[in-house]
Design a protein around this nucleic acid. Structure first.
Lengths: 249, 249
DNA sequence: TAGAGTTGTGTATACCCTACGCAGTAGCGT
DNA sequence: ACGCTACTGCGTAGGGTATACACAACTCTA
């Protein structure tokens, strides 16, 4: 059993991801790497969804026994956290744009792109505040984008949380529900439109006047690309942040 | 097996929650109600967390066999959806405030209160757009709050999604992580503060200059009530919405 | 009164995570 | 060179999960 002498309070595998915890070269050379395990798990999730990721499946994909994995990860939970970190990947390199709003918009879009590449990440149950290498790296870059603003550091963090939460949430609604729709075969009409059709059947004008009115306009039948909702939400949030920044100067 | 003649495409249990699908009085009188099942499940989740909700646990709580539940619900998935609906409950009654921002702020706070009463709802995996009675009722009320604005109906829906997503997400960070913290015994220092302490150990000034700078200010060590983050985010979003409304008039 | 449809339940299948103990390996101190 | 020791991989086993299916009991309808 690995001793917890690093004092971070983090699980051993997460510390390993940070590069701490060098191998004490006593026993047999490990035949696996945390990285290979995580890669295999990510591959499974990308191919068959997060639900298909089981310890035995990951192990068999790697040609080892199920229990070997527990030499590298002390619970499936940790594997999921590491998968999440791998899915986000490192943030884009280089210097962010001078203008905070441009830079921060880029940041949000880059985050969305990462999530879109691995839509299952939004279903990883979160248990702790971000403390894996890539999560912190994204935070670092987000803070860098806001560097020249007059926000306090606490406010900057709050803005990061707000926007990253939005990206997550929006991705869940877009990709996840859309995937569920596609799985049921309905791919032609947009999920928004078929949802509107459903609501029409469920709601009556007496109990749901506002919903009925909204449906009657036909505004919801317009397909709308998957990005529209994202653009709208992001613009609103950034407008709000901009208002705060302006009020300070 | 229940026939799908109602044409909503919804699972039978959800239709039952809407009051459609009256009992075809052929066989023995049902000994259970969907409502009682959902209540039992909600009770378990509130007492021991969502993870403790298993079909067998719910059944034994009701004094019936596990498989009986499948006469009322065709999969656990549906039970979870109904639990979610029950947890949110109906929105507050009465006429919303005249001023859209006041009314909508009330709406968001009421939603947060509902979530706070059943923190586990944020961990219910969502699979479909909102189509249960209470979800639609909350939407109805949200739309009513925005009635007098000059937003298009599509935009109103987008705003609702944006804010309700924010409430969900914020609740997850606040209540869920806080609960995990409490479970590990650390209740004195705020979770924010201990997170900051962790980051200090993990980050060096060279790779993470912005994070290091943020930590150095000590801004993150301030405890901060659980509502602070919520207030901040909500204000920003509503400022953004207000900007849109103003730009239109 | 016969039939039919519905309800509750017991059994069985196919998974899942992971605690534990054992065998084998490789480096360290002597 | 030789244990000692710590670490690796793995087989077994236990306790959990959801749910498909068959069957008996029940009650309404024809």
């Amino acid at each position: 059993m690995a001793t917890e002498d690093s004092g971070t309070g983090l699980p051993a595998s997460i510390e390993a991801a940070w590069g701490l915890r060098e191998r004490a070269g006593k026993g047999p050379r490990p035949g696996l790497t945390l990285g290979r395990i995580v890669d295999a798990a990510v591959g499974i999730a990308s191919a068959d969804g997060l639900g298909a990721v089981s310890m035995s499946r990951v192990a068999s994909e790697l040609g080892v026994s199920t229990m070997s994995l527990y030499r590298y990860v002390s619970a499936k939970d940790e594997l999921l956290t590491l998968m999440e970190d791998a899915a986000y990947g490192p943030p884009p390199p280089g210097e962010p744009a001078k203008d905070w709003r441009t830079g921060f918009t880029d940041w949000a879009w880059a985050l969305r792109t990462s999530v879109a590449r691995h839509p299952w990440v939004v279903n990883v149950p979160i248990s702790t505040p971000p403390s894996t290498p890539n999560s912190v790296a994204w935070m670092e870059r987000g803070l860098a984008c806001l560097r020249r603003t007059n926000l306090s550091e606490g406010e900057k963090i709050s803005v990061l949380m707000l926007v990253s939460g939005f990206v997550r949430n929006e991705a869940r609604m877009t990709f996840d529900i859309l995937a569920a729709h596609r799985r049921k075969g309905q791919s032609l009409e947009s999920s928004m439109a078929s949802w509107a059709k459903l609501l029409e059947k469920l709601t009556d004008a007496e109990r749901f006047p506002a919903v009925t009115a909204a449906l009657r306009t036909g505004d919801l039948d317009i397909p709308g690309g998957p990005d529209d909702e994202f653009v709208f939400g992001l613009e609103r949030i950034l407008d709000g942040v901009e208002a705060l920044i302006s009020a300070r100067s």
